[in-house]
Amino acid sequence: MDARFLGIDELVEVPSVAVVVDVMRAFTVAAWAFAQGAEKIVLAESLDEALALKARHPDWVALKDGPAAPGFDAVNSPGLLQSVDLGGRTVVQKTTAGTVGALAVREASLVLCAGFVVAEATARLLRERECDSVTFVVTGEGGRADEDLACAQYIARRAAGDVTDAAGFLRRGAESRAAAELTEGVRQGVHPDDVALCLELDRFPFAVVAALEDSLMVLRPRAVPSLTDEASI
């Protein structure tokens, strides 16, 4: 598999297949939202658009980076979200990097949004689709966030069928600038467990697929057969 690793600003053409990686915390949060029962996640281009969507759909759950703010129901923290019942709800998500990266490749034929918590399911879906060329969008720090790059590189190796020890990749995530900022309280809207939750490898058995639906970029979970299931087929 031909894998490219690019920052958002380095995208000069629409890739055929894109995996958008935001470990800390957008797509860890997205996975948790689905685990908490959310039906779908709508990505907003701006805070104003998120609030406008919420105004049109009062039953939707609006979520943003940083501290709590009027009009928003939740913040971009897996630790805070894991106690929220989202059964059957639609979530509107706007973050600094992850949602921006996914919207930048909205025209791709296949868009997956990933973090360590859905790494194996993401790799398995790429293998299932027999993707020969994949662009990994490293969203954090202008494409230099080591937790995102480590996760992207790990998924790429697993998608290629390599037997890969995840320990070194997870260590890079734990030692990243983002992890330090979350631990030290530099970023707001944080739960003490956020870093640990972001580094839980393969917590969920689904991939997160993004696609345009009526002009909106929408995320939905996609169940992927486990290795045990594959072996029994």
Rank of each mutant, 00 (worst) to 15 (best):
I8E: 01
L110K: 08
A33H: 04
T228M: 06
G142F: 08
G161P: 04
L227F: 05
K94C: 09
D2W: 11
G173Y: 02
I8K: 01
D146C: 07
A33W: 01
F136T: 01
D132W: 09
L110G: 12
P205R: 08
F5V: 05
V92H: 02
P67W: 06
R4S: 13
V20I: 09
A231I: 10
I41Q: 00
V12Q: 14
R89S: 14
G66T: 07
P58D: 10
G189A: 07
L227S: 14
D48R: 12
V23Y: 00
K54F: 04
V23A: 02
H57R: 15
L6R: 12
Q82A: 07
A97F: 04
P225T: 14
R124A: 09
V17Q: 10
G71D: 15
K40A: 14
T135E: 05
V195G: 01
Q153P: 01
D59T: 15
A97D: 04
A145I: 08
C131K: 09
V218Q: 04
R158G: 05
L112K: 00
L63T: 01
A210L: 05
D229M: 12
A223K: 11
P205L: 09
L197F: 04
G173P: 01
A69Q: 14
P58Q: 15
G7W: 00
H57T: 13
G189T: 03
K94V: 14
